[in-house]
Design a protein around this nucleic acid. Structure first.
Lengths: 283, 283
DNA sequence: CTATTTTATGAAATTTTATTTCATAAAAAA
DNA sequence: TTTTTTATGAAATAAAATTTCATAAAATAG
């Protein structure tokens, strides 16, 4: 029941406010009606305001009420419960069985990015990046993978880019950031101290901050100008999150392809030239 | 196919007017995108008016476009029917559409790793890594991402590990590799010169070579002792492979979790201690 | 305790999306 | 031909989702 929408609502029930409890009670009791209801109808039935209905969807990690309805419809259409119980990774099975589970878990993680990512925020991000003079990425630990990937991709598109896993090096580069630049902060928890510090400095220097982070009330999520939310999936305190990289990379891929489509053509020819040149060198 | 929405559209196709055919063609080709589209978006894509989209929903016996979207979402949740047309990434669509496609493509790539990876080779790899004195990873370009991730993960498990994107640095380290060690070569094409050279040196020094590479007749695939094959998916010469990272990472995840399960427990306690210590430092 | 800030909420305003209406042009029938 | 019917898109309208703003309650600081 862990990875399902209804399961998640059920689990978090005790942490909800009174208003949120009203909404979730109605949803849990009348799940199959929700996909065809409007915010107004649900608000009335649950005895709350429409705004609270919208807020509830976001609270449980879904970008919009519309998406919530679609996701719920899909969930209810499949009878069997999803195997999104990530504890399966802890069992000691054969390598091939483990492999199948990893495939499953990773696919699921990517799929649920559809629920967390907000359409408008994505559009804002693409628009902001397109016009950036310089793009500074930062992420440590597992998130450094996505930061590195982003660095490579945007470098290839001809942007002035910057990223190093060393916090102090990055710190030394922040004085040269200005309001024409974009700072992309990547952190699953949104609470990593180093990431937050650089984010605040970037903002003070007038740069736009795009956060790729879990949808929650973390400082990073709150403080960012543009929020690209990753889904809150498993976080096994023993194994560590293996899926957050996948969701972060999916968002990086999207940004790359979008910008590529906007400015790609001319950059491409130059890139192709460079590649051809390398090939002749190697001969 | 009969009772389904898509089936019905398909059956009635010949009785449709020109405008209706346009709408149904788009729907049949991009069914999974419809639930998150607006009338306006679909109208634009199909090259018809919004009114015609609404009329189309009614034509096939659905009360409203909203209901149509919900029904379609439910229908698609049940059946597994994948699009493997990766050229979709080239079209210039809106950011959110691109995002949906990226999600789709990445999910598919991971899924098809199931077809390429050989059970016995995986078992051999796990067995070999388990007993390694030192593990040397190498990958450049896009494959450096997976190499870095592997480095981090196996370092966390207490292995002696090595990886640097700099070929010459790696070259300088190869004299210290011996028959107790494992060299993990990561390359999509299996033809990258630098990777091949290091692979050959490693083999000459008596190390076991594990290749994470596309399943084809590349030199790397042929020469490796153990082959962990990634699926041959899209390779757009313009955009570059966005999916190979996903498949490579899935394999790295698998190796990590397998080894973790074999030797994990004792390492964990030590790791937890280190984490706790960091937390006290930060306070 | 009191003042200040933060948080949660609903009402109202705004934006987005779906649907209907109406005018027009093409096809069919008289 | 002329009239009628039909199909369609543009524009208008209605409905729904989302954001903004004001306010009251709760938490925190002084």
């Amino acid at each position: 029941m862990a990875g399902t929408l209804l399961g998640r609502i059920n689990e978090q029930y005790n942490q909800f406010s009174e208003t949120e409890k009203k909404v979730s009670t109605y949803i849990l009791n009348h799940a199959e009606l929700i996909p065809n209801m409007t915010t107004n109808e649900l608000a009335t039935k649950a005895g709350v305001s429409e705004a609270s209905v919208i807020r509830f969807a976001k609270k449980i990690g879904i970008g919009s009420f519309k998406t919530f309805k679609i996701s719920l419809a899909q969930e209810l259409a499949v009878k069997e419960d999803y195997i999104t119980d990530f504890s399966i990774l802890q069992k000691k099975d054969s390598p091939y069985e483990m492999f199948q589970k990893v495939v499953h878990v990773n696919k699921n993680a990517i799929e649920s990015t559809m629920e967390s990512l907000d359409k408008k925020e994505l559009e804002k991000a693409v628009d902001t990046l397109k016009n950036a003079r310089k793009i500074v990425f930062f992420g440590i630990g597992g998130s450094s993978i996505a930061a590195t990937d982003a660095l490579n991709k945007f470098a290839k598109l001809g942007f002035e880019v910057e990223f190093n896993t060393d916090f102090h090096y990055m710190l030394s580069r922040m004085p040269f950031v200005n309001e024409l630049d974009v700072f992309v902060a990547i952190s699953m928890s949104g609470e990593t101290k180093d990431v937050l510090e650089l984010t605040r400095i970037a903002q003070k220097k007038g740069a736009k901050v795009i956060a790729i982070t879990n949808m929650n009330k973390s400082p990073l999520y709150k403080e960012a100008d543009i929020r690209l939310a990753t889904p809150v999936v498993e976080k096994d305190f023993r194994i560590g999150s293996i899926t957050s990289r996948m969701t972060q990379l999916t968002i990086v891929d999207t940004l790359y392809i979008c910008i590529f489509n906007l400015i790609g053509e001319k950059v491409l020819d130059e890139y192709q030239e460079a590649r051809d040149y390398v090939i002749t060198l190697r001969r």
